[in-house]
Amino acid sequence: MSTITRRDFLKYCGFSAAAIALTSSKLGFLAEALANPSAPSVIWLHGSSCTGCSVSLLNRIADAAGPAPTIKEVLTDAINLVYHATLMTPAGDPAVAELRRVYDGGNYILVLEGGVPTAFGGAPCIVYSLHGEETTYQRAVQEMSAKALAVVCVGTCASFGGIPASGSNPTGVVGVGQLTGRATINISGCPANPDWVVWAIVQLLTGTPVDLDADGRPTALYTETIHGASKQLVHDKCPRNPYVNALAPAEAAAFSDCDGKCLIQLGCRGPSTKSRCNGCWNILAPPSNPDPVDRWQNNWCIGVNAPCHGCVEKTFPGPESFYEPYSPPG
């Protein structure tokens, strides 16, 4: 493990600088931040979640240099991840004692995965016990948000409530900002894209102000500039949209004949979804034995003929069918 250094983390940031718009001067600040032994710790708590955002984060761990960057450094050297229930070795009291020690010190970034259930006094989600007393996620979020340097909501559930808050919302789930009334940096998505999560943490470590949209999402992540024009909506950037790509075929009318075609009639929410998803997911490096193919492969939902479900939006999932033409509420 000691072979991984902070220098490697900076290298990662260099690799992904193009993708996440880090300037070289920011990388300089990052070097200073990482050299600082009193750099903030990271506490990562799970609420009403599926752990999918944590799994997604792991999908950016790689040894090899290249377009698929690595976050192993983030987990080991670069970020002092003191509490993450899926990844950490400690369990029970020792784990919780360490968590409370860092909380008392106040020098931490709080990362929250999962919405906050408020029904039954918060009992649908217990995050830990301390001295035999159970602590609800609701209480932990309230307490720890108050002392955190910053709060990052990873995924749509923490950002807006997401799927557990849909329909009749049986456990009274709300997003973190809705519970605390405090500003949060929302990295929405189901799951959150790991590059976007790393980007947000790097901004915080370097003390860089983050410009947020009306839903608390970094504008730098959910908007793209294409041919000099600022584009937010998936549809406005989609290679299957004839206005973007003159060679795009006609809209698909059925799944039996939709390969490569615009999916708007099959429920695609791209026209009302702000994101830069195209080619952003599970970026595949060439195999170690590159024959018979030697290329990077960029994946995304629409790339496999699946309609965009708008999973980064506050309106996700909504009561509407995922497979009928979509009009957003309001």
Binding site: C50, G52, V55, S56, N59, C190, P191, W281, N282, I283, L284, A285, Q297, N299, W300, C301, I302, G303, V304, A306, P307, H309, C311
Partner: peptide, 14 residues
Amino acid sequence: EMGALFGGKLPHTP
């Protein structure tokens, strides 16, 4: 990444 070749994205393929 293998799964995402056909699944589009993982976790949570559509």
